[in-house]
């Protein structure tokens, strides 16, 4: 299991297109992906879960990846949270 605190840098937060992009990247890995915001647990492969969590720019979340490709998943997803497409 890999765990990391990340500050979301996307201009519009994790809404709409960035959320879809995040899920697209997340589903390419076999590891379980979790986002924790204010002690709420969100499935990182769920577009509705992520959008419902309404994660804005500058918010700090904890990203957890757990599985065979957890390292690669962490690197790719951190990028998706901090770099504009």
């Amino acid at each position: 299991m890999v765990e990391k605190k990340i500050v979301v840098q996307l201009a519009q937060g994790l809404h709409a297109r960035p959320a879809a992009n995040f899920v697209k990247v997340a589903t390419t890995f076999s590891s379980e992906i979790k986002i924790i915001k204010n002690e709420k647990n969100v499935n990182g492969k769920s577009i509705m879960g992520i959008m419902a969590a309404a994660i804005g720019k500058g918010e700090e979340i904890t990203l957890i990846t757990d599985g065979a490709d957890e390292q690669e998943a962490m690197t790719a997803l951190e990028k998706a949270l901090t770099e504009q497409e």
Binding site: A16, R17, A20, I47, M48, G49
Partner: peptide, 16 residues
């Protein structure tokens, strides 16, 4: 087409 790509993601959403 983006909106329909989002629809596809909803259909694949594990939470659903």
């Amino acid at each position: 087409a983006d909106i329909f790509k989002a629809h596809l993601l909803v259909l694949e959403d594990p939470e659903l």
